[in-house]
Design a protein around this nucleic acid. Structure first.
Ligand code: MN
Ligand code: MN
Ligand code: MN
Ligand code: MN
Lengths: 222, 222
DNA sequence: AACCTTAATTAGGATATGCTAATATTATAC
DNA sequence: GTATAATATTAGCATATCCTAATTAAGGTT
């Protein structure tokens, strides 16, 4: 069985790889709040495991092997199931779930995972709209685009919020930008300026910087 | 925060201390399936912590300090809440809960604990009839006696089953010896022989060795 | 009192994971 | 194309936890 630490590295590498195709040392170190040499060491170990979880090229970075990707998706599945459980069964808000899910994801047996999934009706999205890999690690394809890409006058349904900082999630919730809410872009300031959006849920308008609108995703099937 | 390992030692020491007043090195080693020198090392560390979790006398053993007992009761509280959750919410049987609870007990935040407890209605007993310490680590007093102590003709309600091996729990469940079931002692063989008992639940009779009847507890308020 | 048995500790190592400081490599900038 | 900045690796160390083998202490026996 993999240690918690290895599982956390797998997740970090998975995310980085899906952003930019590669996971380099400093990006992993950043993501995990760990020093660079710790990452180098761990990458070597993970590449030396039987079977290897990553392929590692010094000075370039790491990529998941099929075995590594399978394990990563399993951890991500458990993480997202746990988040969903915490919100739906224990009444957490979407900004409260991350730290607890990050520990629970390493403490689950196959039985626990199955039972949690069944209890929730085999959910396909977590509280942030992230896809939950199925038992076999499969993810659905979906079409969405960042809120930033809408032009003034366009509207759409929020399908996912990729903001990692809890404060941002709490703020968005407070102003009525939750999953499945329809938003309309009223104004889009030039020079990478803020977007003014209207929430159908709260009925109020808010100006949001692109740091945030880049992380709010809208159903592309307009 | 304490490591999982330290939390497991705390539990082991708590149980041994409540059986015999002391927790000596080999007993702890046995209980934890760990070698003796590992225990000696850990006891030294736990006694050196700030505040100390145990008092440790070389060649004699360990005892929990008040701080250590508080922490131990907290871990036990979480363990038993998790067991209760696994049975009541996820449909585990009482013989399936232990290993999972043993991992989950180390992965819980104060919020998680409160929410789980609230979801279950602040339960006071776990699926084996063990008392769940309350938020402040307080345990109720209760009066019970081992099934072994009943004489032929006497009957009583099962309040607790302290069998640790899952196979025993599964067996007892199968023959209808569950919590709150009323049992009658039909026969008690001499020379530490078996007890023949009748279960009101299954309506059937069974001969049980004293290894087992010593671990089944009966409400003493006959 | 010397002896033996059992239990516990000490010695010496191993593994997993992290850190800082020093060094090497790669990429960028003139 | 060399100098510089940025990244990454190596070296050297630390902590937590476990192990086996060797030694020591405690307690009971003759
Ligand atoms: Mn994690
Ligand atoms: Mn999520
Ligand atoms: Mn445990
Ligand atoms: Mn129990």
């Amino acid at each position: 069985m993999l240690t918690s630490s290895v599982e956390n590295y797998l997740k970090a590498i998975y995310y980085l790889q899906h952003e930019s195709g590669w996971a380099n040392t400093s990006a992993i170190a950043d993501h995990m709040t760990v020093a660079n040499p710790s990452v180098t060491m761990m990458l070597k170990r993970m590449a030396a495991m039987q079977p290897p979880l990553i392929s590692y090229t010094p000075y370039e970075g790491a990529r998941l092997t099929p075995a590594g990707e399978k394990q990563a998706l399993e951890v991500i599945r458990v993480h997202r199931l746990m988040e969903t459980f915490l919100v739906r069964v224990l009444g957490y808000t979407w900004d409260e779930v991350h730290a607890d899910a990050d520990r629970l994801e390493h403490a689950s047996s196959p039985l626990l995972i199955e039972r949690i999934s069944a209890l929730l009706g085999d959910p396909v999205r977590d509280p942030h709209g992230e896809d939950i890999p199925d038992r076999n690690g499969l993810l659905p394809n979906r079409s969405e685009l960042p809120l930033t890409n809408l032009i003034a006058g366009q509207s759409g349904r929020i399908t996912r919020v990729a903001a990692d900082r809890p404060e941002i999630l709490r703020y968005l919730g407070e102003i009525g930008l939750n999953l499945d809410v329809t938003v309309e872009v009223l104004e889009k300031a030039p020079f990478e300026g803020p977007l003014t959006v209207h929430s159908s849920e709260s009925g109020s308008d808010h100006a949001l910087g692109r740091e945030i609108t880049n992380r709010i995703f809208i159903d592309a099937a307009h």
